[in-house]
């Protein structure tokens, strides 16, 4: 593509290419953006900030490295406890590693026409990642040692999870799922207008067994399910809404009958039966790997034992 020749950061400069981020083309290779000073080591370029989420999305056990780029002289705006509002020209970069190898890097670019989501798959020699608009299946070994058919999403599938009322939007960087210290540092660096007050924060995943069962499970469901299961998401028609801020027990699935589950119901009657995960459709679908049953529908080819345990504990502790 034209961009590779003209717009990429020059070697040695280690600067992000604003044109690659903001332009209307889809850069063919990840290096066109200049997000990394050393891509093999995932060392970010100047102006690219790493971050973590308190609870991350399960991605078949892949390690994920997250970065945010905010253009020089601009700031993100905090919006209450929720998603940071990143200015035009910003990018979110997420690299997936499995068994120590770079598999794919997904970028979300804030352009004039809105957010654009693009998937890049790493070459076997780990030197470059290439645009893969149509998605791809990659044979890997999963975290449990079993063969795994890892799915790189196609561009439309990016939107299935990232779509809110039909427009692509970031999911991860919500204040309630970010560390206070990271937010404070971003603000101190002049990249965030203020540090938002968060009344109830998602607990750290590595501390889930010590955390309140409901907080751990609700955090997990927010991160893994609520991007579709919200009133404006891909699963809006289900009426099952699993966001962190949801309060209605029926919307959370408690005593709620399925609407279009098909064989996803598993011959069970309701989404969540208090005290009884084994008879809860929500748990049944999380515990399945079969197309048409398994939830989430995209991005999961292996079970998440820790997630299942957290949700089972939450349902188990509910009063019958």
């Amino acid at each position: 593509m034209l961009m590779s020749a003209t717009l990429a950061a020059q070697p040695g400069q280690k600067m992000v290419s604003e044109l690659a981020v903001r332009g209307s083309d889809f850069p063919a290779v990840l290096s066109d953006y200049g997000f990394f000073a050393d891509s093999a080591a995932q060392k970010p370029a100047s102006g690219v900030t790493p971050y973590r989420l308190n609870i991350p999305l399960w991605s078949d056990g892949a390690d994920k490295l997250r970065f945010v780029y905010i253009p020089p002289g601009q700031q993100a705006k905090a919006q209450d406890e929720g998603l940071l509002d990143l200015p035009m020209g910003s990018a979110l970069i997420k690299t997936f590693k499995m068994g120590g190898k770079l598999i794919e890097t997904r970028v979300l670019l804030h352009r004039a026409e809105g957010w654009v989501a693009l998937p890049y798959v790493w070459d076997a020699d780990q030197r470059e990642a290439r645009l893969t608009l149509g998605g791809k299946r990659i044979a890997l070994t999963g975290p449990d040692g079993k063969p795994l058919s890892y799915a790189v999403p196609n561009k439309n599938q990016c939107k299935e999870c990232h779509g809110v009322a039909g427009a692509v939007t970031p999911i991860g960087p919500k204040a309630y799922n970010l560390a206070p210290a990271w937010l404070a540092a971003l603000q101190k660096a002049g990249k965030l207008d203020h540090v938002p007050v968060v009344t109830k924060r998602i607990p750290l995943w590595e501390e889930r067994t010590r955390a309140d069962a409901a907080l751990a499970a609700r955090g997990y469901l927010d991160v893994n399910c609520a991007h579709c299961h919200n009133a404006n998401g891909a699963a809006s028609n289900s009426g099952l809404y699993l966001g962190w801020l949801e309060r209605d027990p029926i919307k959370l699935g408690i005593g709620k009958r399925p609407v279009a589950a098909g064989r996803g119901s598993g011959n069970l009657d309701v989404d969540v039966v208090p005290g009884d995960a084994a008879h809860s459709i929500l748990y049944f679908r999380m515990a399945s790997l079969e197309g048409g049953i398994a939830m989430p529908e995209l991005g999961r080819a292996a079970l998440d034992p820790a997630g299942l345990t957290a949700v089972k504990r939450w349902i188990g502790e509910m009063k019958r």
Binding site: R137, S149, K159, G166, G264, G291, G292, L298, A301
Partner: peptide, 27 residues
């Protein structure tokens, strides 16, 4: 292997015609 349906359409004014979809795992 994945996804909840064979073909998913999320845009307006689309016409689907003269083809078949067989044996999807979901819809």
């Amino acid at each position: 292997q994945g996804a909840g349906e064979g073909l998913l359409v999320t845009s307006d004014d689309v016409t689907l015609r003269d083809f078949a979809v067989e044996n999807t795992h979901g819809d």
